Computed example of a mutant assay.
Amino acid sequence: MIQVTLYDVDLGCQFHKLYFAIQSNSQTVETHLVSQLPISTLIEGREFKIILKDGSITIGSISFPPKQLNKQLNLVRWITLFDPKDDQYDGNFIEDDIEQPRILLRIETNYQYQQKMFKNNLLSSCQLNQKENTQQHIDKKKVQQILDDHKDMQNKYNSLKEDLLAYRDISQQEVKQLEQEKQSYLQENKALKQQIQILKQNELPIHDQQQKNGTNNNNNKMK
């Protein structure tokens, strides 16, 4: 990862509308109208090319191949622009270039910055994961609570079901017992009625005989 910042331009000529373009891997990354400096661009790659244009006319360009950016750099230099057909940088990053047109450029292949970005991304990822884990923990607790509630409801239902079954059995027993007692009472009552009827039948002749005997005695007394 390379950070490129344009601080100033020194063209040695007049210009109308100046554009600053950056390419990486032969593709244009960004194009800026040079109206307010500095201009900073972050490049994901190991090479880049800068093109300076006045409108549609190319003033010059400069290319930095990977071999020149394979070490840690953090510097500000005046860099001369060349013809786009042969624009590879052949300096040593130690001295400023003095030929015009040139640009004041900062190149930072800052691994500390990259590590900082990595740490920030890692921290953000950890915070996100922590947030997700917290949410997952909350969701897990909710699900577990629902399962526990369902289990309690199931246990209560089973217990209630057993109670209802037991109550139903007891009720049937009681009804059956009452029915048996009723039948027994009816039979006893029937037997008692029969006995009473027999007694009444037996008692009637005796009573008639007593009445007859009583009449005869009275007649005899009158004689």
Rank of each mutant, 00 (worst) to 15 (best):
K176V: 04
G91L: 01
S26A: 10
E174N: 13
K190M: 03
V175H: 09
S56R: 10
Y89V: 01
N155M: 10
N155T: 12
H150T: 09
K151D: 08
L160F: 11
L199K: 07
K140M: 05
D83A: 09
F15Y: 15
T80H: 08
E188N: 14
S35K: 13
Q172D: 12
Y19K: 03
T58M: 06
D86N: 13
F64A: 04
S40E: 15
L75E: 07
Q127T: 06
S40K: 14
N220H: 11
E108C: 05
S184Y: 05
Q88D: 04
L81D: 02
E47G: 05
Y185R: 10
N202A: 06
S40W: 01
Q130R: 10
I57A: 15
N216P: 00
A191R: 13
Q209W: 14
Q68D: 07
Q135R: 10
L199M: 06
K85V: 11
K53T: 02
V34F: 01
I198T: 13
S125N: 13
I103Y: 06
E179H: 03
S26P: 00
I146E: 05
Y19E: 05
F118P: 02
S184K: 13
S40L: 06
I57T: 15
K71A: 00
T58H: 07
I50Y: 00
E95C: 05
V9Y: 07
D148G: 01
S171D: 05
Q3S: 14
L6W: 03
D97K: 04
N213G: 01
T58C: 15
K200M: 12
P205Q: 14
I170H: 04
K182R: 13
E181K: 15
S56M: 06
L73P: 05
I22P: 11
S61N: 04
Q112V: 08
Q3H: 04
K116A: 12
N213D: 06
L33D: 05
T109Q: 00
D152N: 10
Y185S: 10
T215S: 11
W78V: 01
G214T: 05
S125Y: 13
P84K: 09
Q135L: 10
H137T: 12
D169Y: 10
W78L: 01
Y113L: 14
L6S: 04
E95H: 13
H32C: 06
E179K: 08
